[in-house]
């Protein structure tokens, strides 16, 4: 579950995939997750840090995490 290395992210939450030319807009939380993934953090560590800071249950976060990863996969933003 690693973000492709050449993916460009911006502070405003924009994502650019140079391999396809596609641009994306991430919601603030999605942008935060992408930054952490890009920095090489492990998913478990990222989730733990989100749980500590956000008003969300572990089960809800896990469902939403899986959904986000499915989106990233569909958009070809993850290392396969």
């Amino acid at each position: 579950m690693k973000l492709k290395k050449n993916i460009a992210t911006s502070e405003a939450g924009f994502v650019f995939n140079p391999a396809t030319g596609d641009s994306f807009a991430a919601s603030p939380l999605a942008a935060e997750i992408l930054e952490l993934l890009k920095a090489g953090q492990a998913p478990a560590a990222i989730q733990a840090s989100l749980l500590a800071r956000y008003e969300v249950s572990a089960s809800q976060l896990q469902r939403d995490w899986d959904d986000l990863m499915a989106q990233l996969h569909q958009f070809q933003l993850l290392e396969s």
Partner: peptide, 14 residues
């Protein structure tokens, strides 16, 4: 107090 949560999402710009 924790931050309000909304599920993370990403959309393709067209």
């Amino acid at each position: 107090t924790k931050l309000p949560y909304e599920r993370p999402t990403i959309r393709k710009l067209t």
